[in-house]
Amino acid sequence: MELRVLRYFLAVAQEKNITHAAEKLLVSQPTLSKQLSDLEAELGTKLFIRGHKEITLTSEGDYLRSRAEEIIDLTDKTFTNIQTDQVISGELTLGAGESIGMKRIINVISGITQDYPDVKIHLVSGNADEMESMLNRGTLDFAVLMGERPLENYHYLKIPEMDQWGILMLKDNLLAQKETINPTDLIDKPLLLSAQALQNHRFQDWWGNLGPQMNIIGTFTLVYNAELLVEKNGSYMITFNHLINNSPTQNLIFRPLAPNLFEPITVIWKKNTVQSKVNQLFIQRLKASLDN
Rank of each mutant, 00 (worst) to 15 (best):
M1D: 08
L3D: 03
L6C: 04
R7S: 07
Y8V: 01
F9I: 04
A22H: 05
Q29K: 15
S33T: 09
K34Q: 11
E40S: 04
A41H: 06
F48M: 06
R50D: 06
S59I: 12
E60W: 10
Y63S: 10
L64G: 01
D73E: 12
D73Q: 10
F79L: 14
G90K: 01
L92F: 12
I106L: 03
V108F: 08
D115G: 06
Y116I: 05
P117H: 10
K120G: 01
L123R: 05
N127W: 02
E130L: 09
R137V: 07
R149T: 11
P160C: 08
Q164S: 15
G166W: 01
M169H: 00
K171E: 10
L174Q: 14
L174K: 15
A176W: 05
K178I: 06
K178F: 08
K178D: 06
N182E: 15
T184L: 10
N200T: 15
Q204E: 11
W207T: 08
T239R: 09
N241F: 04
I244A: 10
N245S: 12
P256I: 09
P256F: 03
L257S: 00
L257Q: 00
P259H: 05
F262P: 00
P264I: 02
V274C: 02
F282D: 01
L286D: 02
K287A: 14
L290D: 11
L290E: 12
